[in-house]
Design a protein around this nucleic acid. Structure first.
Lengths: 120, 120
DNA sequence: GAATCTGGTTACTGCGAGGTAACTACAAAA
DNA sequence: TTTTGTAGTTACCTCGCAGTAACCAGATTC
């Protein structure tokens, strides 16, 4: 899931991409934001993610110091996730990605074969 | 290679991640920068990427309007790649990722079994 | 006694990303 | 005449990402 060749690169930028350059991590960081979020919340908020993948991604984000996992010794279990200073510092970058996309995303142009054709 | 569920999302941010949220695209955009770069150049500059994957990624980046492909009718073939306005507008984001990583990347802590041990 | 609630973990499985190698066209050089 | 150089494309194969389902603990509710 994490590409060792990226993480072991001597290029800082490549290592950074190895850390956050996949589709789930920016989504997860964005969902947490400045809040404290429980595992089950993320599981239901984020579309199409499986519990297994969510667990893996959260574990990697924790290992890379982007978030903090707080497990309460209760039953049924309760686990909170919160962004660390490093994770919080990444939020402005996500904001600029949002602005960038809003400004430049091409309007969905109808493809040739999607066009309405007048047949007799 | 591109996740349809992301590209078809009604969330602009999710679509953005669908566009540039993988490991190769930020690397490619960063390598091109403000220059004009040939296919073979990228192939030799970017470590560990295969021609096949490079071709695919470049095609998707072109489809998403991030870069321009300029093919000269010569033999042997010559193809230039250059960032579009949209692609150029993404460069500052990559810069802030670099700064973010420089600031927060944890110092590589030696693992237990990498430590020097004094054996008799 | 059974069901529920939560945050996982594990085993099984399939599909597809991605690697490799071979092949292309054609001109110019050796 | 053979080789070289460029930018791919194609066929083939493998590995592993990720989906699914089952299972767990143990307190609380029904």
């Amino acid at each position: 899931m994490r590409d060792e060749r990226f993480c072991a690169s001597n290029c800082s930028f490549t290592r950074a991409i190895g850390t956050i350059g996949n589709k789930w991590k920016p989504i997860i960081i964005n969902v947490i934001g400045t809040r404290t979020v429980r595992f089950g919340q993320m599981d239901s908020i984020i579309p199409h993610i499986s519990r297994k993948v969510l667990t893996e991604q959260l574990k990697e984000l924790e290992e890379d110091g982007l978030l903090t996992r707080i497990a309460y010794k209760e039953l049924p279990p309760r686990v909170d996730y919160r962004l660390s200073e490093k994770g919080l510092a990444f939020l402005p970058i996500l904001e600029s990605i949002k602005e960038w996309n809003l400004k430049y995303e091409v309007a969905l142009t109808p493809k040739e074969n999607d066009r309405i054709t007048y047949s007799k």
